[in-house]
Simulated assay, not measured.
Amino acid sequence: MTHPIHPQTSIGAVYLKVSDLERSAQFYQDVVGFRVLSENELKVELTTDGRNPLLVLEKIPNAVVLPRKNTTGLYHFAILVPTRNDLSLSVRNLIKHNLHVGQADHLVSEALYIADPENNGIEIYVDRPRNEWTYNENGEIKMAVDPIEWQGLIDEAGDAEWSGLAEGTVMGHIHLHVADLKATEQFYVDILGFKIMAHMANSALFLSAGGYHHHLGMNVWAGVGAPQPPDNAAGLRYYTIVLPDKAALEEVLNKLRIADISVEPSDEGWFVQDPSKNKILLVSQV
Rank of each mutant, 00 (worst) to 15 (best):
P4M: 06
H6D: 06
T9L: 04
I11M: 12
I11N: 06
G12Q: 05
A13C: 07
V14S: 05
Y15S: 10
L16E: 09
K17R: 15
V18D: 00
S19A: 15
S24F: 01
A25R: 10
A25K: 03
D30W: 07
D30S: 14
R35M: 12
E41H: 12
V44P: 04
L54S: 13
L54N: 00
E58Y: 08
A63Y: 06
A63C: 07
T72C: 15
A78H: 03
D86A: 04
D86F: 00
L87A: 12
S90M: 03
N93Y: 04
I95T: 11
H97K: 01
L99Y: 01
H100Y: 02
H100A: 02
Q103W: 05
A104G: 14
H106G: 05
H106D: 06
S109V: 12
L112H: 01
Y113E: 01
A115P: 01
I122K: 03
I122W: 04
I122Q: 00
E123R: 02
I124N: 00
R128W: 12
P129F: 10
N131V: 07
W133Q: 12
Y135S: 10
Y135R: 13
N138V: 06
G139N: 12
K142L: 15
P147K: 11
G152M: 12
G152D: 15
L153E: 13
I154C: 11
D155G: 08
D155M: 12
D159L: 13
E161L: 14
E161A: 14
E161Q: 15
S163R: 15
S163G: 10
G164D: 09
A166I: 10
G168I: 12
G168W: 11
H175C: 05
H177D: 08
V178H: 03
A179T: 11
Q186K: 14
Y188K: 08
I191E: 02
K195A: 15
A198D: 13
M200V: 10
A201L: 09
A201S: 14
L207K: 07
A209D: 09
Y212K: 11
H215D: 09
H215N: 06
G217I: 01
A222G: 06
A222L: 04
G225I: 04
P229I: 05
D231L: 14
A233H: 11
I241H: 04
L243S: 14
A247H: 03
L253H: 09
L253G: 05
L256D: 00
R257K: 15
A259S: 06
D260G: 03
S266F: 08
G269R: 07
F271S: 00
N278A: 05
N278C: 07
L281Y: 04
V283Q: 13
Q285K: 07
V286A: 13
